[in-house]
Design a protein around this nucleic acid. Structure first.
Lengths: 228, 228
DNA sequence: TAATATATTTAGATATGTCTAATTATTTAA
DNA sequence: TTAAATAATTAGACATATCTAAATATATTA
């Protein structure tokens, strides 16, 4: 498997594709465009380019999937991104709602050596501050069974495993209520129409909207496991 | 003084100009081209652009000088660069011969917040690993009187103040002889034609070529001061 | 001072990633 | 099953920073 030189645009697209594929079989053009904040036309152009380089399988009008090579390349960028998020948070004290944007810029200019030293200085971690798995150097990555918090039934007790890292306001809101990966919570009630969720966390009651609950992933099993 | 949004190419040019102006009144087109590793034609094009933006004074066939605004912008990039060099060296243990290339990539994507946290975590330092002054946040910068080691007379004792940071082999060589900023050395002999320099450092004798000696700057006063 | 060498600029080309507007496919709803 | 809505692609344009080759200006040398 050859090594391919990627530029920043290609790296951005690959990471967007990788993330889109976490929840769907195909990364559609519009989904990638939305994630990258660019036009669909631009995404199509890049899909063709990545396809020509054998980094993705591109099926017109369906979207793209990563090839083995593309997967490997994407995981390297994801590793950069998540290691940086953790490093910025742990070593430099940047609040968890701001590390994503910083990491997004830094991830493209991280040398192998710097990546390795950062990883070592953190003890070769396997999770970023938002609970996302950090791929290992060899491309292996933890696969954990998740559920969206919004799909949990009233009465269940679950552990928060992972939150979406892209919306600072959302993360600040969670932080203000001490909702971090590892937090155990019991779902009290679920409003039938709006999906408003009432939770009990450490004897405090918290209410979340359905959109917020959709950005939170929790243990798939019925009973909580203490994690992290 | 307005704030101007700079892209990576503009930042690279501004830093090259700033460095060229450390030794010359004008930053010539060819000198900038050499430093940036691009063609003179490209430098001319950028000189015009920076001139249009009032960041430099461009006199055709003479070169460029930084305006007040350009100086301020350049110093911000230089601050990024040197803070990063020191951080990579101190916090992540990257050898001093490799920090320049890393910093060159990172300097363009450093946010104000990250810059500030890095600076704080280093105790708001004023010198990078190669002895170059780190501009303060407000743009003030230490001005130290230097001399090239190659211009020192035999018999003089001087303190190494600063070395060129761009050639890894050169830095490794210095490191192998324990020549770092702060090192006190006595010039024993100077070969008249080739300029070969014999030094005594801690009772060890070291010989340097004229090119190497030209990349080392030492105290301007006749007697050494213990620095750093 | 004229001839030559060197440095700089201009002209024109290329690669890249993005955009908008128009066209074509696909999906959804009537 | 046809019509309408949505999604994706194509065509064509633009900004950017770079390049090479040719032209021009400046500096150096005979």
């Amino acid at each position: 498997m050859e090594r391919i030189t990627l530029n920043q645009a290609m790296e951005n697209h690959l990471r967007a594709i990788h993330e889109a594929l976490e929840t769907n079989e195909w990364a559609t053009t519009s989904e990638c465009a939305r994630r990258l904040g660019i036009s669909s036309a631009s995404v199509t152009a890049m899909s063709k380019k990545l396809s020509r380089l054998k980094l993705v399988k591109y099926v017109p009008y369906h979207g793209v999937q990563l090839t083995k090579l593309g997967e490997k390349s994407a995981l390297e960028i994801v590793r950069h991104h998540r290691l940086l998020e953790l490093y910025l948070s742990e070593a430099l004290g940047i609040p968890w709602d701001r590390v994503h944007d910083e990491a997004e810029k830094l991830e493209h200019v991280l040398s192998e050596e710097l990546e390795e030293r950062i990883s070592k200085s953190l003890g070769d971690p396997t999770q970023d501050p938002h609970g996302a798995p950090i791929p290992a150097r060899d491309g292996t990555i933890d696969h954990v069974e998740y559920r969206a918090l919004s799909s949990v039934e009233p009465g269940e007790t679950v552990t928060l495993l992972r939150v979406d890292d892209r919306v600072p306001e959302f993360l600040r809101y969670l932080g203000s209520m001490n909702l971090y990966p590892g937090t155990v919570m019991k779902v009290i009630t679920v409003e039938p129409l709006g999906g408003l969720l009432a939770l009990r966390v450490c004897d405090k009651e918290i209410v979340l909207g359905s959109q917020a609950a959709g950005m939170i992933r929790v243990t798939a099993a019925a009973k909580a496991e203490q994690r992290q």
